[in-house]
Design a protein around this nucleic acid. Structure first.
Length: 301
DNA sequence: CTCGATCCCTGGACGC
DNA sequence: TGCGTCCAGGGATCGA
């Protein structure tokens, strides 16, 4: 699942492989994950991909109009791409057969095709410009790699929500998902259900440092490939080998040897060590796991 | 303000 | 082999 390190890895790859190329034409298939497919079809052809960068869990393809066209840039324009759970954005040779779930193809001026493939379509694609683009980016919180200790302490410490929910909240910090939330909480020795406001200054400091260290290491290792993540060159990442909590239910804690537990916090599986990450007193009963009690959920298809 | 529940979606795992 | 069921999860939305 692409979180900050995985998106960073893909963005860096694309910056090398497709920045500077001009988009010649656009073909869309399923479009239900796009803000406005007709705008994408209309605005992208003829624009050059000036650069590719990461913004939270988004990739931002900065676009410029062809210089030859003459018109000065009135404002910034970009294609926002969120990979969701299973999204992949990568260049292909035109003769490569289309994947079953390829939903957008951007033909480039060197003949290659930048293709967006996403089986589950939990991703998002949007062309935004000017004020609209600026306003959209403003919705998100601080970049976890750049957030200062003061800002981190304020954003986390001023909220009574559970720390796990805060880490996952993209308006608090942009880019952290379930894997790196659990990994940093394990590293900092903080229980996922603890209230942000109950964190001691030392805990806030440990958490921020752990989060940044883990994200940087994960970027170095080109992300975690737990299901089917591959980067823009088709290569998996290696950070999953360093996971200490995520996905390790029942396995021994690397620090104390006790079995890693799994509970649901903020609606997500949360893996933690019951010894190293003491349950807070202020939390009432914690739900044990995902046992949905309802019978069949009407499958409407 | 914060919470849980629900929906979206498909592939893979698992039980029978 | 094949079918049914469950589960994963980021984000939007809604009601409590």
């Amino acid at each position: 699942m692409p979180e900050l390190p995985e998106v960073e890895t893909v963005a860096r790859g694309l910056q090398i492989s497709v920045a500077g190329r001009r988009i010649v034409s656009v073909t869309l298939r399923k479009t239900d994950f796009m803000d406005d497919p007709s705008v994408i079809e209309r605005e992208l052809p003829g624009r050059q991909i000036a650069r590719v960068e990461r913004f939270g869990k988004f990739m931002l393809l900065q676009l410029v109009r062809d210089r030859a066209a003459g018109e000065p840039e009135a404002s910034s324009q970009a294609l926002l791409v969120h990979l969701g759970m299973t999204g992949n954005l990568a260049p292909h040779f035109a003769e490569q057969p289309l994947d079953k779930h390829t939903h957008a193809t951007f033909v480039l001026d060197d003949g290659r095709e930048l293709r967006y493939t996403d089986a589950r379509r939990f991703g998002r694609m949007a062309y935004l410009a000017g004020e609209t683009l600026a306003a959209e980016l403003l919705r998100f919180g601080a970049d976890p790699l750049e957030v200062t200790a003061e800002e981190f302490a304020k954003r986390i410490g001023d909220s009574r929500a559970r720390i796990k929910a805060l880490l996952l909240d993209q308006t608090v910090l942009r880019g952290v998902g379930n894997i790196y939330a659990d990994e940093s909480l394990w590293s900092a020795g903080i229980h996922p259900a603890k209230s942000g406001a109950k964190l001691r200054p030392k805990e806030l400091q440990r958490l921020r440092r752990a989060l940044q260290k883990i994200l940087r290491k994960a970027i170095q290792m080109r992300g975690s490939s737990i299901s089917d993540f591959v980067d823009a060159e088709g290569q998996p990442g290696d950070y999953q080998q360093h996971h200490r909590a995520y996905g390790r239910e029942g396995k021994k804690c690397f620090r104390c040897g006790r079995a890693i537990n799994r509970i649901i916090v903020a609606g997500r599986s949360s893996y933690f060590c019951p010894v190293c990450q003491q349950a807070p007193r202020h939390v009432g009963r914690i739900r044990k796991s995902t046992k949905r009690k309802g019978r069949a959920r009407t499958s409407k298809r």
